Simulated assay, not measured.
Amino acid sequence: MASRLFGLGDELNEDAMLGRLEGMKDVIEQVNRQFKDPDLTTFVCVCIPEFLSLYETERLVQELAKFEIDSHNIIINQVIFDEEVVESKLLKARIKMQQKYIDQFHMLYDDFNITKLPLLSEEVCGVQALQNFSHRFLTPYKSARKRGTIEELEERITILKSALQEAEAELDRIRKGKQSA
């Protein structure tokens, strides 16, 4: 059985097996040195702003530290930024919940590089989409909207008027449907 594990076939030769193990040991030690050298290897933790992800990231960072592997970078993905105009109670609650965990990430990892990436309307799939998305790793996300400005308030009013018109049209359709039934 051991001979098959080390690729020696049926000619089990103790010297050959020891030589192969020594060769593997050298490769393992070289890989181990590379993993421990922060100039060659850095582990980037990617998570989302939720409890379980925060917990698992903490476990991962502790395990990597035990093995002396650099992990001073965290990407928090799928963040809903509160600068956006959000009228949904569900999204407002989600933003508040996410912010609680983002604050905890910053408290736990104040000496880490933390990058927040926005929740997107579509999945990043394929080379071109990944290339388009990659600029977000170097340039922090900034909302185009400025809260509390006249322009932002006018935009919110326009959105609310549009939603009101849609709701009134739907109400009219329902009323007409009941009258004809």
Rank of each mutant, 00 (worst) to 15 (best):
E58C: 10
C45P: 00
K25W: 13
G23I: 01
D70H: 06
F35L: 14
I28V: 10
P38G: 10
E29L: 02
M24L: 14
E50Y: 04
E14S: 09
V61H: 06
C47I: 05
P49V: 04
F35A: 14
K36F: 11
D15F: 08
C45D: 03
F51D: 09
Q34G: 10
I69K: 00
V27G: 00
P38L: 09
E29A: 01
H72N: 15
V46L: 08
D15M: 11
D70M: 10
T41Q: 04
E56A: 13
L60T: 09
L18E: 04
L40R: 05
K36V: 05
E68I: 07
K25M: 11
L52Q: 06
S53D: 03
D37Q: 08
V61G: 03
E14G: 05
A65H: 08
L60M: 09
M24E: 14
P38S: 09
Q30N: 09
D70C: 12
M17H: 05
Y55Q: 08
L21F: 09
E56I: 11
H72Y: 06
S71Y: 02
T57S: 13
F67Q: 08
C47H: 00
L21M: 14
G23Y: 00
G19Q: 15
D39S: 12
E58W: 03
L60A: 07
K36E: 07
